[in-house]
Design a protein around this nucleic acid. Structure first.
Length: 858
RNA sequence: GCCGGAGUGGCGAAAUUGGUAUACGCACCAGACUCAAAAUCUGGCGAGGUCACACUCAUGUCGGUUCGAGUCCGACCUCCGGCACCA
């Protein structure tokens, strides 16, 4: 090879080598410990973007690090290949979604290979291929059998003029994007997965991953599930045997309830208003609310609250008080029970509502201080200030105006009143969740068909397992009308009922693409299995995933679905663990300046601030691009693109390359290697180099364990700078010098491999090793990663800062094992120090062994 | 509005978790090489101050704890994210 660094030559050479030797293909069950390194699979849009490059560079660095450490590393990749863009391309440009997707995959696979990412390509999967989505359908049927998949009427956006379904985006502002007609909410039969059955587990099991997932993600998932502890209370409807059940987290405020408020679409309304003169008004109100479900962003909370008194009365089971029943738009049917007790004095929303409609405001909680609680814990007294209330008082306090409960503290009352409700039979403690079931129906072509057949006689019938997969037709007519294109393919739609053999229609909805990505990393373990989604025995060897890496945009979508799916698979008996991913890293965005502005935004086509990875690779090489990306910022930070930064990375690699070339002839013959003990006395320069080498190994190894990749690179640069400072030259080097240089260069090369695998392979070869970097780790199962010798990593001489009254005044040199007394004496004897303490009284001397001395004077 | 996170040179960032603030890199400045430029190499690079030292100030602001605070505590300011009528 050449004396000059030509990345394109080196990179092509080693990519070919890896391909020819199947270097990254793994099999389970060898004697090495396993490591599953997973990056979020890309959607095959056609082009890799810098976010992908960052994601895969991080993952690849870790995969290489673990391999060199002697782990059997599973590092797979695949394609999240169902989804919108393919269908949009079909609608707009008339292309076939399958052909479009396949072409994109070919192109992007090439890009990943040019980047040199060490994937096991033999395990590549793609969601749109029948051998994959067959198992989406299989899982769907398993869930259907267990009642975890169900169909229900659910509101969608509907254009009455065109008679089609619109997405949220297509109906923004409440009008159809094409014809401008007012969009209605219409109920359609849609398929759901009962993720709410797992709400409690999804919250509780976060304890298992709390320490190893980003706090931010855990928090968002908990918020998303929205567990809330409170109580149910049944209010009896006056002159009726009907009851209205409300959910509250503040049962201690029940004596302050001055109304019951129902969601406009509450099912009880119909029955309660039978024969009422107000019935028509309430119905009209409900329709109006349904039509404008979206909250205008600029409206104040009070403005948009609207309600109507139904004329119905209800009785508070605690106070026996009779209060009116209202309907209002701020109460949601799909949370809690769809009914609330309105306590204006102690709830902001109820307060606003009460102000607007002049409902009474009655204070039942008074503020208390800790001092009061300490003084009379059993019966604290509070003052009623209802008349002057200008805001709701939402804190805990002491109960007033609450009959026999008066004087109790909120915390106590909450427990006792729930208990009382339960023993009296009108309620009790309860937990509710914000989480809703996962709607997976999409009226689209490019997805996995829901494996259900609708029969006029038998209803919804599951497609028998033996008939899977339900294949997508080759193509369909893409009108963009909003209806599933599948419904326009008679060969697909028309079928026979598996139960009665009569004519029947297939379900034309396809599944949300998040279904595909909920379990794909299980499939990687056993990607060609034709009899099952995977063999549990094989999966057991690899999963849980040891490290998962991706953007945090999926914090509550993909990552919560995947956790849900895992729990379902466990309940199906396929696996035995609750959580599929041990450690999660959410990498930061890659941003670039938006031209003509000072703003840094995520690279995107529409902003015109994208940078093409291919161009970077061509200009600087894959190694330099990857090195820059990992060096420029901590992995979880935003990364601001900077072209001069990548030039710096090339500069560094060129210097390392030249350095190895300068030395390699004197180092190349492995036969001449001598162990350290026989290398003779080390010169001062060689000692310094060896020390730096071992310190660097310790630092980089430690940094890798925490994925502090940017500081690892900095450490490698420092080691290189130490080599530059070396006075001895190749032609004058003694055997012990050569030993130290070899040790430094080999360590540097090995530790560079996770960042820049191509040049590392090249230099490793140059240093006299054959078979590639992984020869030892994979063939002989011996770790190749360098080991820090603690003796050498330790400093030879310490520079101890001496402070006087906390201000740095001098530094003294000391041996690492210097005693406290000697250090103290040395500090006090220092000439510079003396000039600061002479004439003062030494009050105290703080000696921190090996660290510093602080002399306190007066 | 509620809940989180973060503020360190011109810039990206370090700081073994309470012990020498600014490692490493980018940009910039000077010198060497060159007819010249680029590339490369060498040196400098927080602010004030000094011929040079000395010294003083500096991790968003103000206060506190401590021999000692970027790090811990309290208040405030600014920016960035998430949720948004969730009872």
């Amino acid at each position: 090879m050449n004396e000059k660094y030509f990345p394109e030559v080196i990179e092509a050479k080693w990519q070919q080598h890896w391909h020819d030797t199947h270097a990254f293909e793994v099999k389970g069950g060898d004697q090495r410990p396993k490591f599953y390194c997973l990056e979020m699979l890309p959607y095959p849009s056609g082009f890799l973007h810098m976010g992908h490059v960052r994601n895969y560079s991080i993952g690849d660095a870790l995969a290489w690090y673990k391999r060199l450490q002697g782990f059997n590393v599973l590092h797979p990749i695949g394609w999240d290949s169902f989804g919108q863009p393919a269908e949009q391309a079909a609608i707009k440009r008339g292309v076939n979604p399958r052909a479009w997707t396949e072409e994109n995959i070919v192109h992007m696979r090439g890009q990943l290979q040019r980047l040199g990412v060490s994937y096991d390509w033999s395990r590549e999967i793609a969601a749109h291929r029948p051998e994959y989505y067959k198992w989406d359908q299989w899982f769907f049927l398993k869930m259907y059998e267990r009642g975890l998949a169900y169909k229900k009427l659910s509101p969608v956006n509907w254009c009455p003029r065109e008679g089609t379904v619109l997405s949220n985006e297509q109906s923004s502002g409440g009008v159809c994007w094409r014809c401008g007609a007012a969009v209605e909410k219409r109920d359609l039969q849609q398929w759901f997965l009962r993720i709410t059955d797992y709400a409690e587990q999804l919250v509780a099991d976060t304890a298992e991953i709390e320490a190893t997932w980003p706090e931010k993600v855990i928090k968002r998932q908990r918020d998303w599930v929205g567990r809330s502890e409170g109580a149910y209370i049944d209010f009896t409807v006056k002159d009726s045997d009907k009851k209205i059940r409300v959910f509250t987290t503040r049962i201690d405020t029940v004596f302050g309830a001055t109304a019951i408020v129902l969601a406009p679409d509450h099912p009880l309304i119909d029955e309660l208003l039978k024969g009422s003169a107000l019935r028509g008004d309430v119905e009209r109100f409900a329709q109006k609310v349904a039509a404008e479900r979206k909250r205008p962003a600029d409206a104040s909370a009070e403005e948009i609250k609207e309600g109507l008194n139904t004329g119905v009365l209800a009785v508070n089971p605690f106070s026996r008080e009779t209060i009116p029943v209202w309907v209002a738009n701020y109460v949601l049917m799909d949370y809690g029970t769809g009914a609330v007790m309105s306590v204006p004095a102690h709830d902001e929303r109820d307060f606003e509502f009460a102000q607007k409609y002049s409902l009474p405001i009655r204070q039942v909680i008074a503020p208390v201080t800790h001092r009061q609680i300490a003084a009379e814990p059993q019966s604290v007294t509070g003052t009623d200030q209802s008349a002057e209330m200008r805001h709701a008082f939402t804190d805990y306090g002491v109960l007033i105006n609450s009959g026999e409960w008066g004087g109790k503290l909120s915390a106590v009352a909450i427990k006792e009143m729930a208990q009382h409700a339960e023993t009296s039979g009108f309620g009790g403690g309860a937990v509710t969740y914000r989480l809703r079931d996962w709607g997976i129906s999409r009226q689209r072509f490019w997805g996995a068909p829901v494996p259900i057949i609708d029969c006029a006689k038998c209803g919804s019938v599951a497609v028998p397992y033996k008939d899977l997969p339900v294949l997508l037709p080759e193509t369909a007519e893409f009108t963009g009308s909003g209806e599933s294109p599948l419904s326009g393919v008679p060969e697909f739609v028309n079928t026979t009922c598996p139960q009665c053999d009569g004519p029947a229609r297939r379900e034309t909805d396809t599944m949300d693409t998040f279904v595909d990505s909920s379990w794909y990393f299980f499939r990687y373990c056993d990607p060609r299995n034709e009899a099952a989604p995977f063999d549990p025995e094989i999966v057991k060897q690899w999963i849980p995933v040891d490290q998962y890496i991706g953007g945090d945009s999926h914090a509550v979508l993909h990552l919560i679905y995947a956790r849900f799916w895992n729990k379902v698979m466990r309940d199906l008996g396929l696996i035995s663990f609750a959580e599929p991913v041990k450690k999660l890293l959410t990498q930061g965005m890659v941003t670039n300046r938006v031209e003509g502005t000072d703003e840094w935004k995520a690279m995107s086509k529409s902003l015109g601030n994208g940078v093409d990875p291919d161009e970077m690779i061509e200009a600087f090489g894959a190694d330099a691009a990857r090195l820059f990306i990992l060096f420029a910022a901590p992995v979880e930070n935003e990364l601001r693109w900077n072209e001069t930064g990548i030039e710096g990375a090339v500069r560094f690699l060129r210097k390392v390359y030249t350095m190895v070339w300068r030395w390699h002839e004197r180092l190349a013959d492995p036969g001449q290697r001598v162990p350290a003990a026989q290398a003779g006395e080390f010169s001062a320069g060689a000692r310094a180099l060896r020390r730096k080498t071992h310190q660097t190994i310790a630092r980089v190894t430690n940094d890798f364990e925490h994925l502090h990749l940017n500081t690892s690179v900095a450490a490698l640069m420092e080691l290189f700078n130490e080599l530059t400072d070396l006075e001895v030259q190749p032609d004058t080097a003694s055997p012990s010098d050569l030993f130290a240089v070899r040790e430094a260069l080999e360590s540097l090369t090995l530790m560079l491999a996770p960042f820049c695998p191509h040049i590392a392979e090249e230099l490793w070869e140059k240093l006299g090793h054959s078979g590639g970097l992984l020869a030892q780790a994979t063939v002989a199962a011996v770790p190749t990663w360098p080991q820090a010798d603690p003796e050498w990593a330790r400093k030879e001489e310490l520079e101890i800062p001496i402070q006087v009254n906390g201000r740095l005044r001098a530094r003294v040199l000391a041996a690492p094992d210097v005693s406290e007394e000697d250090l103290r004496a040395a500090a006090l004897a220092d000439e510079k120090v003396r000039s600061f303490i002479d004439g003062h009284e030494v009050v105290k001397v703080v000696v921190v062994p090996r660290r510093l001395v602080n002399i306190v004077v007066r």
